[in-house]
Amino acid sequence: MKIAFTSSGTTWESIIDPRFGRTEYIVMYDEESQELSVVDNSSVKNEAHGAGTATSQRIFELQPDVLITGNGPGDNASAALKHIKMKILVNAHDLTLRQAYEQYKNGELKEQ
C-alpha cells in the first residue's frame, strides 16, 4: 500500500497539514519498501486559483492507495479525486505523520 500525507514538513515527526490544495508537502510512504518520499507542493501553494485541482493532479500522478489529510479536500478537489480509486481519511490535523499512520492502522481515522 502507498499512503499519501498532506504534511507541513518532510519527516515522520512533521505535523499533518490540514489543508489539501495548499499543503506544504505531500509525503508518500510505501509500506512495501518502507520508504518515505517527499513532494514539495510550494509551487501550488502560492497559486491564486485552482490549488485544489492542481494538487489533485499531483496526487493522481503519485497514485497512492490512501490519502491522509486534515480538513478534507474542497468541492473541486473532491470532484477530481473521485476519478482516483483511493481512500481519503480526514481530521488527522494536529497529529504527526507517525501518529496519523498509527491511527490509520488502528482504523481510528474518519473516512471522507
Binding site: 485541482t53 492542481a54 489533485s56 473541486n76 476519478h83 482516483i84
Partner: peptide, 17 residues
C-alpha cells in the same frame, strides 16, 4: 487556473474555476 486537469485518460474541466 487549473480549471483543466488531466487524470490519466480523462480531461476534467472545472467550469467554476
Amino acid at each position: 487556473f487549473h480549471a483543466v486537469i488531466q487524470l490519466g485518460p480523462t480531461i476534467v474541466v472545472f467550469p467554476q474555476l
